Simulated assay, not measured.
Amino acid sequence: MKIYFTFDPRPDLKEKVLKDFPDVEFIFHNSIDDGVLKEAEVLVTYGEDIEARHIEVAEKLQWIMVASAGIEKMPQKEIAKRGIVVSNVRGIHKIPMAESVLAHILAYKRGLVWIYEQEQKAEWSRKSKASELHGSTALLIGPGAIGSEIGRLLQAFGVHTIGCNRSGKSVDYMNDMISFDALQNTLPKVDVVISVLPSTPDTLHLLKYEHFKAMKDSALFMNFGRGDLVATDVLMNALIEAEIAHAVLDVYEEEPLPSDHPFWQMTTVTVSPHVSSHSSRYMERSLEIFKPNLRKWLVGDNELINKMDITKGY
């Protein structure tokens, strides 16, 4: 069996994979070689480097392991037509992303940006406008594994958590649950709105201007899921019109965010360059999912951990 990684893992992690599967042929590149792809039965990729033509070239391909959570940039129709199994690393992002979200909230609430500015100016001032996170209410849109971990941390700070998903079905570490249908009526009650939704046809521009108008003018909006949750001009207008107080964004409709984009200059926006999931343990955790899946695959079991429905995007 030939397994093709379109990236080159850290040497120590790569050595462990080779040691655990001595009878499997692994090829590690930092790009895609059509000659190797033509012979590969399993492809391990971050997803963004796969185009429709690659699926045509990969005549023997049966399984794509995506070392990421999102598959929206992959040629989904071509993969589905071939019946290729797709799995991802859903769940590995929950710790770094939850810590990133909490860090941004605390930085905003406790005035850390102002403190850092004073430090740079060597100016002693105690006119901080810090507020408390304790006693506030947070709405988490799309609370899966990541949202539940965010909820757990927020509850430790005395925050009331409300989860929002398509069904309204209960999720761990949410004090209350609502469905998408109840979103408009719930927004006026919350202080922090956090989205960790994936990109699917159902979530495209889910949030409209009326949703931001329904939020408190003191609300903090955070998008750590996918940038197409809200149209850029809608969010910008909501900020300009002071419908909300501040937005912390890790994802955008256009990435990289152009250097001349207004968000960079807006004091009501914190720009994070899609790094909330970054961690020194990212690849280690990805391989912890890949290796048991490979053991299953080698004995003919294709019911893999995090097996996805490529046509639905999750």
Rank of each mutant, 00 (worst) to 15 (best):
K94D: 01
E119D: 13
E119G: 13
T161F: 00
E78Y: 08
V101R: 05
V192W: 04
H93W: 08
G151K: 12
L133Y: 00
S170D: 11
A67I: 13
D191H: 07
N88H: 08
S195L: 09
I95K: 08
S100T: 06
V66R: 11
G91R: 15
L183V: 11
D172W: 07
W63M: 09
F180D: 01
K109T: 08
G91K: 12
D172G: 09
K73W: 04
E119C: 03
R90A: 12
G135C: 10
V193E: 08
A182E: 11
S148Q: 07
S195N: 12
I178Y: 11
L153W: 03
S195P: 09
I146E: 02
V85K: 11
G142D: 06
E149F: 04
L112C: 13
S148E: 08
A145P: 03
G147F: 02
N185I: 14
G151Y: 04
G144D: 11
L139P: 05
G91V: 13
T137A: 05
M74N: 05
I162L: 02
D191S: 07
H134T: 13
A98N: 13
S125V: 11
H134S: 05
T137W: 07
K129S: 12
I92F: 00
N88W: 06
V89E: 02
Q120T: 13
E123L: 12
L183C: 06
A80S: 12
P143I: 06
A67F: 14
D176Q: 15
G144V: 09
D191L: 09
M65H: 11
R166W: 09
K129I: 12
I84C: 09
G168K: 14
G91M: 11
A138P: 06
A130C: 07
L133H: 05
L187W: 02
N88C: 10
W124H: 05
C164I: 15
I146R: 14
T161L: 05
Q62W: 05
D176E: 15
I150G: 02
D181I: 11
S131Y: 07
A122Y: 14
L154R: 11
S179Y: 07
M174C: 15
P188G: 06
V190W: 01
A80I: 10
V171I: 14
W63N: 12
I194H: 04
E72W: 07
T186C: 14
L106N: 01
V101C: 09
A67T: 15
A107Q: 12
A138C: 10
M65P: 03
A130K: 13
L140E: 06
W114S: 08
K129H: 15
R166A: 10
W124T: 02
V89D: 01
Q184R: 15
Y173W: 12
Q155L: 09
T161S: 04
S100M: 07
L139A: 00
D181L: 13
R82A: 04
V193Y: 12
S148Y: 06
R110G: 00
K121H: 08
S87K: 09
S136V: 05
G158I: 10
E119M: 15
G83K: 14
W63Y: 06
H160D: 02
Y116Q: 14
L102E: 00
Q120A: 12
L183T: 14
V86F: 05
S179L: 12
K77R: 14
F157P: 08
W114A: 07
L112Y: 09
E117S: 14
Q76T: 07
K189T: 14
I194S: 03
W114D: 08
L106S: 00
